[in-house]
């Protein structure tokens, strides 16, 4: 069943249309793409389909029902609660997190000020990414991350849409609650893109565990430093590192004796070593475990777990 909080931001006609879509497709939806004057595209599994006016799915765009300008405006109103000014930051970044933790990517015409994007107007596309919680996917991985006294610093390597964020979130939750392998620890999440905890108004919409502090919408490098100083975490979790300042902050965290679990875009180990900042980090032995994800056996397939010298540790299968 689709999340009611998600349905609430859809304008009436689109809401009715999606109610007409076969329920097993609705349940597997990953993305709903809504574009001005164009058909609604649904992404589920590896397929993409357009929606006809009777709710049937088609791969032929000309047969599909088209979204008009009025509905786009209504949707903008619904997402912003009639208050575009409250979304200034979000429009600058190009996405909004709504209650329920779903993310809506926005594109349109950029308004510039001194060469920087100040806002978006004439909004032409929405990409609704439906958030799914996969409780328990992290549990089989935990034994590989246990060090002598603390968790090992871990880098998750994954192409987009392979369950990177889902795994990070579940790791946060599993570590925070404690599990059969270890007692619960203090976890802090730097959630730069509000993806891991999906906070709305400072409240995480996802279960990230009882011992977890979330620093929402904060740049990673700065956020890691702030958390070390203020929250004394045992584990810091953040998403998608890659900038030079991230390396400095991560070094700082390691010196402070805080374990770090983070992720990076990439298809394999050689891929990430081509990126200078990441190579510098891996070269210095900052990470002790590498987890490689793919979607070869469905989203979130763990291809392998590797040690600090990229030696493969025993492969675990966690289809989910």
């Amino acid at each position: 069943m689709m999340d009611t909080r998600l349905i609430a931001i859809l304008p009436g006609p689109i809401r009715d249309l999606l109610q007409g879509v076969v329920s097993n497709v609705r349940d597997q939806l990953e993305e709903i793409r809504i574009r001005r004057e164009r058909p609604i595209e649904l992404i589920f599994g590896q397929t993409s389909r357009f929606v006809c006016s009777n709710g049937e799915l088609t791969s032929h765009p000309a047969k599909a029902w088209k979204v008009n300008a009025q509905e786009m405006d209504k949707m903008t109103n619904l997402i912003s609660q009639h208050s575009l000014y409250a979304l200034e930051e979000e429009l600058k970044r190009g996405y909004v997190t709504i209650t329920g933790g779903h993310r809506i990517g926005i594109s349109g015409k950029a308004v510039l000020e001194k060469g920087e994007v100040r806002a978006l107007r004439d909004i032409s596309s929405f990409n609704i990414r439906i958030a799914r919680e996969m409780k328990g996917v992290a549990l089989p991985i935990i034994p590989y991350l246990l060090g002598q006294t603390q968790l090992l610093n871990t880098l998750i390597i994954s192409p987009p849409q392979c369950g990177k964020t889902t795994l990070l979130r579940d790791l946060a939750r599993t570590i925070s609650y404690g599990n059969v392998h270890m007692a619960g620890k203090k976890v802090a999440i730097v959630d730069e893109r509000s993806e891991i905890a999906g906070s709305v108004g400072g409240i995480p919409q996802r279960d990230v565990g009882p011992r977890t502090d979330v620093l929402d919408a904060c740049p990673k490098a700065e956020g890691i430093m702030m958390l070390i100083r203020s929250m004394s975490p045992e584990v810091i979790i953040c998403d998608e590192i890659g900038r030079p300042e991230d390396a400095v902050a991560i070094q700082e965290a390691l010196n402070a004796g805080v374990s770090l679990i983070t992720s990076v875009h990439g298809a394999n180990l050689t891929d990430i070593n081509r990126r200078p900042t990441i190579r510098q980090m891996t070269g210095q032995g900052m990470f002790h475990r590498y987890i490689l994800l793919s979607r070869s056996k469905g989203v979130g397939t763990v291809e392998g777990i590797f040690g600090e010298n990229f030696q493969s540790l025993e492969k675990v299968e966690t289809p989910c």
Partner: peptide, 12 residues
């Protein structure tokens, strides 16, 4: 409410 609180319109 709008300029300093950035409160959503219905709430404001």
């Amino acid at each position: 409410e709008i300029c300093y609180g950035s409160t959503a319109l219905p709430q404001a």
